[in-house]
Design a binder for these strands. Structure first.
Ligand SMILES: [Mn+2]
Ligand SMILES: [Mn+2]
Ligand SMILES: [Mn+2]
Ligand SMILES: [Mn+2]
Lengths: 218, 218
DNA sequence: AAAATAATTTAGGTTTGCCAAAATTATGAT
DNA sequence: ATCATAATTTTGGCAAACCTAAATTATTTT
């Protein structure tokens, strides 16, 4: 038996994992909104369960078993987000919080049927890929808008944060997943970028550009 | 803040409440699959929160505030059951367990949108009425099949248990909510009832008949 | 009206997940 | 190499929700 809290820890380790590096106690505490002491407690438990590999004072990595569970939670989270936006027509800035609850509902059958009902979507409303039942994730070649060159024509493939204010702002600018953006100018002073959406012209700060994943037109 | 466990206690009190009678500690323990000692603990807490009115050694009743919460949980449970059967096409014998989890998801907006998406259903897949947002429940005149007279022609309006085996059995007999049943014979020996479904003839034991809510054709 | 039985509450204890403060280990600066 | 700082772990403790066993109160039987 695995608890909702344990699932959240595994999911956070997964999200903070880069390449083969281990995840630090402090980063985990930050990501989970808890304290380093609590993380040490839970890390001990999850290591005993062989879901995390822990090197004291050096951080943790997911084991195979731990990664499997993490991917399953991510899958459920993203499928529910698709359901909330597509089926119930909720806004993309309000679904994350609810999906944080729904991702812990336990029923294989339910998720399989939900997946089928939604038509086996491969990306969630924020452009994040949805792992399949075996934990396989579709890879795409993407760059940050902040790395694009002048004149580039790119599609918005994803956003790197679920922050509600940020998503509402994009909505307001009529920028959403799939939007075609043309880089008109990159200001040397602050690296802010002026763009054409086809309909109008907008400027994004460098900070915003670091959150936008872009891809080539297919 | 109210926990899932507290919600379950309030729901159980609601379900066990008859007329103006109070609900006993033992009955609650039975219904919740826990011990009388645990019930006493929780009853104390919920009384302090003014959600239950407790007379020591005499049982509990819901306060107005407690009833409001209980009805809200029941509403969510039944709406999710409709979603699972109608939208995801799950069987009516498998949705109860999952709805027990989904009923604790916290989001007014979600439930309102789910209700709208489902077309404001008034009954769940087992024929139980769905309270509206104000906790109002639609009343119907129903009788148990066990109380019907020979020759009566009645529609199945609901079932009194979510027991999976029982529901599967009804499915097998092609008896579901809305089925028209004609009482052919009531055996004096064991009060079992033979019926016509229109297509075929079946016999239900007295125990089964005590679980079937019937109503007059509209 | 006692005594026996049943229902309920209380006492004492466990597990899970959390925290603040103290102790330990690692890392960066001198 | 030593010292200072930062990161991590350990210690001791708390609250929620549960349990068993013991004590208390209510109800039924004699
Ligand atoms: Mn999300
Ligand atoms: Mn997402
Ligand atoms: Mn149910
Ligand atoms: Mn039901």
């Amino acid at each position: 038996m695995i608890t909702a809290s344990e699932e959240n820890y595994l999911k956070s380790v997964f999200k903070l994992s880069e390449k083969d590096k281990s995840v630090s106690t402090n980063d985990l505490a930050q990501s989970l909104g808890t304290t380093p002491a609590s993380v040490s407690d839970m890390v001990k438990k999850l290591s005993e369960k062989k879901l995390l590999a822990h090197q004291p004072y050096k951080g943790v990595k997911l084991t195979q078993a731990g990664k499997k569970i993490a991917l399953d939670i991510v899958r459920k989270h993203r499928l529910w987000e698709v359901f909330l936006t597509q089926t119930l027509e909720m806004k993309w800035d309000s679904v994350h919080e609810i999906a944080e609850q729904l991702e812990h509902i336990q029923s294989q059958d339910l998720i399989r049927k939900l997946d089928a009902f939604l038509g086996y979507p491969r990306f969630d409303p924020h452009g994040d890929p949805i792992p399949d039942e075996n934990g396989k994730i579709e890879e795409r070649k993407t760059i940050l808008l902040g790395e694009a060159k002048k004149g580039a024509v790119l599609l918005l493939a994803g956003v790197l944060t679920d922050n509600s204010d940020f998503l509402q702002y994009l909505d307001q600018q009529q920028v959403r997943i799939g939007s075609r953006l043309t880089v008109l100018e990159i200001l040397p002073f602050d690296k802010s970028v002026s763009l054409s959406t086809g309909k109008k012209q907008i400027t994004f700060s460098a900070l915003v550009c670091q959150q936008l994943l872009m891809m080539e037109e297919v």
